[in-house]
Design a protein around this nucleic acid. Structure first.
Lengths: 111, 111
DNA sequence: TTGACACGACACCAAACGGTGTCATACAAT
DNA sequence: ATTGTATGACACCGTTTGGTGTCGTGTCAA
């Protein structure tokens, strides 16, 4: 039984501001990974709540984790965000004028 | 009392796949706008459910509406998606190799 | 003016969400 | 060996979500 994970959408995972901050913290971590007890103090909520948000991010495969001693270190995996990028990029052509040039530039680059 | 709206996050609004499909349908509408009863048949759920999704999109200002006769026509406003674009763009540098070149190109362009 | 249509508003419901606190376990340090 | 730390797993709880059905009102068509 290799996969009993609920397996979650990236869109769903980044909908919560706490989870977006977690992603940011992991992105800026010098070591590239952080354990739960170093992430927790950045929030007003308790450890358990942060842990649950990390679980949701794991379900979306936005973070990976490995156990080191008694702590679990979490690391960012930004790849699923490409789906978000691709989806939102489609609507660039509907934005207000000043980014149309950039949009065209991207289209050339992306094929 | 000009603003009694709950006022919702764009990230929150696009988290639901039904709402993403609504955005797509409105984007592809030839007339640029569609009434509820033309949107509904694209889904398996009932009219009331679709209407509630549209309300949520309205709270995020991703759709605008105007009344025409007995119908309410909904139109896409993609501008709030720029916030999503900006947020996700930050993590392009963490993606797998082949987009690093594009990422650098965008950074030059964006300042 | 009667009837069908389009819609918003509302009550309702089960399930998921976003928190809390507690407990058991594994590991570190002394 | 004992104590303290880090964590996962639960049970619990109030609120929100995503759906349903119904009702009332405004509008178009006969």
């Amino acid at each position: 039984m290799s996969e009993n994970n609920p397996m979650r959408d990236a869109f769903d995972a980044i909908a919560d501001p706490t989870r977006r901050r977690l992603i940011r913290l992991l992105a800026e971590a010098e070591a590239g990974e952080l354990p739960l007890h170093e992430l927790t103090p950045h929030f007003t909520m308790g450890r358990t709540a942060v842990s649950k948000h990390l679980t949701i991010l794991k379900e979306a495969e936005l973070v990976l984790d490995r156990k080191v001693g008694r702590e679990t270190r979490y690391r960012l995996n930004a790849d699923p965000l490409r789906e978000v990028q691709d989806w939102v990029a489609f609507y660039r052509k509907f934005w207000s004028e000043n980014l149309i040039r950039l949009g065209r530039l991207l289209e050339e680059e992306e094929e």
